[in-house]
Lab assay of single mutants.
Amino acid sequence: CHSECLGNCSQPDDPTKCVACRNFYLDGRCVETCPPPYYHFQDWRCVNFSFCQDLHHKCKNSRRQGCHQYVIHNNKCIPECPSGYTMNSSNLLCTPCLGPCPKVCHLLEGEKTIDSVTSAQELRGCTVINGSLIINIRGGNNLAAELEANLGLIEEISGYLKIRRSYALVSLSFFRKLRLIRGETLEIGNYSFYALDNQNLRQLWDWSKHNLTITQGKLFFHYNPKLCLSEIHKMEEVSGTKGRQERNDIALKTNGDQASCENELLKFSYIRTSFDKILLRWEPYWPPDFRDLLGFMLFYKEAPYQNVTEFDGQDACGSNSWTVVDIDPPLRSNDPKSQNHPGWLMRGLKPWTQYAIFVKTLVTFSDERRTYGAKSDIIYVQTDATNPSVPLDPISVSNSSSQIILKWKPPSDPNGNITHYLVFWERQAEDSELFELDYCLKGLKLPSRTWSPPFESEDSQKHNQSEYEDSAGECCSCPKTDSQILKELEESSFRKTFEDYLHNVVFVPRKT
């Protein structure tokens, strides 16, 4: 048989008469490798580009789960590009990614509803959504962080984005990388972005840091009482949809009607710091009717980097990364020049730590249904340095008659930039024990000054392991946590139920 035959053949030295091919099969003959313009397919066939392209389009058009959109890589027609490569849609070739590779997620039936953290986790790592997304989240724990972890990498949506009755959302900033909504599939009414009845939605994105392009379709905003109209108009300008909307697409009466839409800028007039305090004062603000001013709200939190936005980490279910302080308005003076500047002394802060701070007014709604208010920009203030805590785990070892090696770990709280350490030492008198000992005694162990690591005695271990207080009263049991108490109650309830079950099964009433 021919060298490319495997198993047997019907005619000697003829690659077209093989029972099976050793390498690849091409047009009725066995070959060692697939010549151009053919590609290896499933490690035994040679196919042309049209064959591989037909497989790709067949799966793409069917949208069946589990099928493969075949691509070409290293002269092979394979189910998908290997790690580190992405497909070129024009020629199906796998090309190296520039940075992290995109991950295209194809949605069944063309859309997916995100109504819980669990459903959001199914899209973790996706960068391109081939379909439409509907966000409908009523509640949950730590929602802002969970949504950002699972949806934060999405850069492109081919269909539309719909935010509907998501009472738990305060902001859409968890879509931190969303840059493009194509609108290839539109919501009824030709809408590519749809926001309806979101009672706590206050911000779409921080438009000073976020760009969003909507290729096709219109915007729809109705019944978002805490979303200011200025935020919607800003989205029109940034996304390129200005002029597409009709009169009733953006409701003037049901958007922002319960919001404090600040239209003035508060400026800080005085800032002073110490290692654990920050004193702030800002310019006074009074609405047209000074009785509408209820006070100020001061927001602050630790910020290692200057990239904080107002609604980071917030949701309507209680999660809030900001510390909020309510401040009463100052006494009002008739003389504008003698107006008191409101302020606040922030206490209990960490030394040498940068804080993000902003302040906003708290006002009631005027009778004319106009909203007044003022808010400052987010500023960054760093507390002063102070003395560091003591170095940890000092170790001293003498390696000769004239040297001592000293080692330690950095302090747990540096409280500033540590530039150097101060080492103090003092000579001590020799131990009298060394002169009084009889060095001729056998088995004498000389006193040693070398360091030995501390260890816990058996008594201390027994005390720590004991669940009861000892007789001397030195140790006591740790208080039980809520989960331990709940577990004990469940076990007790189970024992009672099981005992009742045994009584009912074992003891049967005697027939009379």
Rank of each mutant, 00 (worst) to 15 (best):
K103L: 08
V104H: 08
V104G: 05
H106R: 12
H106K: 09
H106A: 03
H106D: 12
E111V: 05
K112H: 15
T113D: 08
T113Q: 05
I114C: 08
S116A: 06
V117L: 14
T118E: 08
S119G: 08
T127C: 08
V128M: 15
V128N: 15
L133T: 02
L133K: 00
I134V: 15
G140Q: 15
G140R: 11
G140T: 04
N142V: 08
L143A: 03
A145L: 05
E146G: 11
L147D: 00
L147F: 13
E148W: 01
A149Q: 12
N150F: 13
L151V: 14
G152S: 03
E155Q: 07
E155R: 13
E156D: 10
I157D: 00
S158I: 10
S158M: 10
G159H: 02
L161N: 00
L161Y: 01
K162A: 00
K162W: 05
I163R: 00
S166T: 11
S166I: 12
Y167Q: 14
V170E: 10
V170P: 07
L172W: 00
L172G: 02
S173M: 12
F174W: 08
F175D: 00
K177S: 13
L180T: 12
L186G: 12
I188S: 05
I188D: 15
G189T: 08
A195Q: 03
A195E: 00
Q199A: 07
L201E: 15
L201P: 00
R202K: 12
R202S: 12
R202P: 02
Q203H: 01
Q203D: 13
W207Y: 07
S208M: 13
S208R: 08
K209N: 15
K209R: 06
L212D: 00
I214G: 01
I214Y: 04
G217D: 02
G217V: 00
L219H: 03
L219M: 04
F221K: 01
H222Y: 05
H222P: 00
Y223V: 15
K226Q: 10
L227F: 06
L227K: 00
L229P: 02
S230H: 01
S230P: 05
I232N: 00
I232T: 13
I232G: 01
H233N: 05
E237M: 13
E237I: 07
V238S: 14
G240S: 15
K242H: 14
R244E: 05
Q245L: 04
R247T: 08
R247G: 15
N248R: 09
D249W: 07
D249S: 06
A251W: 12
L252W: 11
L252G: 07
K253E: 14
K253A: 12
T254L: 11
D257C: 10
S260W: 10
S260E: 13
C261V: 02
C261Y: 03
N263H: 04
L265P: 11
L265V: 13
K267P: 06
S269L: 12
T273V: 15
S274N: 02
F275R: 15
D276R: 01
L279V: 10
L280V: 15
L280N: 01
R281S: 14
W282H: 02
W286I: 00
F290R: 08
F290Q: 04
R291G: 05
L294Q: 03
L294H: 13
M297N: 15
M297W: 15
M297D: 12
L298H: 00
L298E: 00
L298N: 00
F299D: 01
F299V: 10
Y300E: 01
Y300C: 15
K301W: 04
E302M: 02
P304V: 01
Y305V: 15
Y305L: 07
T309P: 01
D312S: 08
Q314E: 06
C317N: 03
S319G: 03
N320V: 05
S321Y: 04
S321L: 13
W322M: 03
T323I: 14
V324G: 11
V324Q: 04
P330L: 13
P330M: 13
L331V: 12
S333K: 05
N334L: 10
N334P: 13
N334E: 03
D335L: 04
K337A: 08
K337T: 04
N340E: 09
H341V: 06
P342L: 12
P342R: 08
G343L: 08
G343M: 10
M346G: 03
G348W: 13
G348L: 08
L349F: 03
P351V: 12
P351Y: 08
Q354M: 01
Y355M: 01
F358K: 14
F358P: 00
V359E: 00
K360I: 03
K360M: 07
T361E: 09
V363F: 02
V363T: 10
F365V: 04
F365R: 08
D367A: 05
D367E: 12
R369L: 10
R370V: 10
T371R: 09
T371S: 06
Y372P: 13
A374G: 11
I379M: 12
V381Y: 04
T383C: 09
D384Q: 07
A385H: 09
A385F: 14
T386F: 15
N387M: 01
S389V: 03
V390I: 06
V390P: 13
D393T: 07
D393V: 04
P394G: 04
I395G: 05
N399G: 15
S400F: 02
Q403C: 06
I404M: 06
I404S: 04
I405G: 06
K407T: 12
W408I: 06
K409C: 11
P410A: 15
